[in-house]
Amino acid sequence: MSVLQIHAHPTRTTVWILSWFLFATGVVSYFWVSRDRHRDNPDDRVMPTLRQMSQAFVDATLKPAEDDEVATNASEQSVAARIRNSMLWKDTAATGRRFLISMALLFPAVLLGLHMGMFPHVGAFFLRFVLFFDKIVALSLLPILFIAFGIDELAKVMLIVVGVAPTIILDSYNLTRSVPKEQIVKGFTLGAGDFSITYRVVFKQIWPRVLNSIRLNLKAVMLFLFAGEMIASTDGLAYRIALLRRHMGMDTIIPYVLWVALLLFLVDFGMRTLNRKLHPWFQEA
């Protein structure tokens, strides 16, 4: 039987093998090429070995960054304190803080989309402007943001908001508009007013979908955050990757990239789980 048939029924083992095959191939290929390069040049920095990357990751987890002032007495501290002062932890905390502030600032975007969808005058006021704003490439605004807001945290957070908020506003708007008219009429006939219908009928129905939309935009959030950090920052995961690039520090860059991917995967998984727990009706429907 051909494996390319639409009606093929791969066994569980086949599915497991197929789904991990590309991962395995990538890892094996990398270390194969890395071993060859190190055989030719033991000081090769482009493709570090597993041992080099492990050592660099342990160092990043337990040691402060070279430019960090805490570095002086680091070896005398407890493991917990060393992790707390470590380069990886501090970078993760800095990026995480910016990420959370940006996510919090996206909530008003959801409310704006909701009100635009519910109240025709609000929709007429904002829709054209948001549609226009959505077409502006956020990264092209970066110089303007740095000039307007300085190179501090605000500019980086604003970059994320400017980059992702229009998408979230338009998503919320479209989700609001897609709530069947019958539901709104039903709300009125049951004695609810405009705001009761907006928040108790429509918002409750679109919220899980909005969460999904935010979840699908996580990568865009991180993209804008990394752009901001790489250009103007003194800490953060992207700042560190950009800094290490100058020194060809691939032994740290690769674990950092994998660490970012893991964090994003965990946030995505957490949001999915939370959505499922909070809104059983949505997942089952």
Partner: peptide
């Protein structure tokens, strides 16, 4: 609320 309404579809709040 003087009029109760039962449409063909979407008659209940799914959440």
């Amino acid at each position: 609320r003087r009029c109760g309404y039962v449409p063909q579809k979407y008659s209940l709040f799914p959440d």
